[in-house]
């Protein structure tokens, strides 16, 4: 992997541009002033639904819980015609097989977190085994976490090699690399970690586990989008983006879509390249769609919680 880079990891990291956080905040604020109305809004809402990785990542997850969520993934709100399904469900490795069979005959993918999610505090052998298990169980996508401790300690080579090793273990499964930006703290770190992950072979980069606050702030996602943009400009290769955690309203989702559109372009606006890691977002979007169709503000009592 490193040979393909034709530069050392150190060089890669030092080539990452610095980020001025206040400048990022200002730019993000401008995305938030975009006013999305009418057809444009409906299109965005449906697009948003189709980009969701419906997620349950709890110690108390059971087959029953996962099966119900999978049903929801395929039947978001049958009352409304022409709705897409979500993009994927996201579960722990032990639930992959259950999800896979629940989603049989649907286009909904199964994503599995792995690599000792969420902390990632395990040896590489364990992480590889974790990943291989999930892939063997049928996971279409693997959401790994990087070793933030190693990253913060400056062991970039370790982080890079680990990502590359997991990528190799993924086989045909697409790899999403979770940076856990809430633990990296600075946007400079977010950018460096993004570059590491992208160059080490990530198919997607993802903000957070959902277990740490702040999670997918727009500042963080923006910074990651710029890393994707720079990589694309340099290599012509597209990398996907997945903000996860904290995006629970349709409004925030639309702001994210605006940001993707204006930074990366319309090409990225499919679930092939952009995902929301979220659990409660779907219902909020559904309520918005219903509101657009009926003109009446909605109650959560009328939308299933699975």
């Amino acid at each position: 992997m490193k040979k393909e880079l034709q530069q050392s990891i150190e060089e890669l990291i030092s080539a990452s541009p610095t980020i001025d956080k206040v400048g990022v905040e200002e730019r993000v604020a401008r995305f938030q002033t975009r006013s999305i109305k009418g057809d444009s809004k409906l299109q965005a809402l449906k697009m948003g639904l189709n980009m969701i990785d419906l997620t349950t990542l709890e110690g108390k997850d059971t087959p029953g819980k996962v099966q119900q969520m999978c049903y929801k993934a395929m039947h978001l709100h049958d009352e409304l015609a022409n709705l897409p399904t979500v993009a994927a469900v996201c579960v722990y490795p032990s639930m992959v097989k259950i999800a896979k069979s629940a989603l049989v005959n649907s286009s909904v993918k199964v994503a599995s977190v792995s690599t000792a999610f969420p902390s990632g505090q395990a040896p590489l052998s364990v992480k590889l085994a974790d990943t291989t298990f999930a892939v063997n169980e049928g996971a279409d996508e693997i959401d790994m976490v990087i070793s933030r401790g190693k990253f913060l300690a400056g062991e970039y080579d370790y982080v890079f090699d680990e990502i590359a090793a997991i990528k190799a273990a993924c086989g045909n499964a697409r790899l999403k690399v979770i940076l856990e930006t809430g633990e990296l703290l600075t946007l400079d770190n977010v950018r460096k970690a993004s570059d590491l992950a992208i160059y080490a072979g990530a198919d997607f980069i993802k903000t957070s586990t959902g277990k740490i606050q702040p999670a997918a702030t727009m500042q963080v996602t923006f910074t990651m989008l710029l890393a994707i943009k720079d990589y694309f400009d340099k290599t012509g290769k597209m990398i996907g983006m997945k903000p996860a955690g904290g995006i629970s309203t349709a409004k925030l989702a639309i702001h994210n879509l605006v940001m993707v559109k204006e930074v990366l372009g319309n090409e990225w606006l499919t679930n092939q390249w952009f995902r929301f890691g979220a659990s409660s977002l779907a219902n909020d979007i559904l309520m918005q769609i219903r509101k657009l169709e009926t003109g009446v503000y909605q109650s959560s009592d009328y939308f299933s919680i699975d």
Partner: peptide, 12 residues
């Protein structure tokens, strides 16, 4: 605008 792409509707 491109066909099939997401564009912002006028928002006066």
């Amino acid at each position: 605008r491109q066909v099939d792409s997401w564009e912002y509707a006028p928002s006066l």
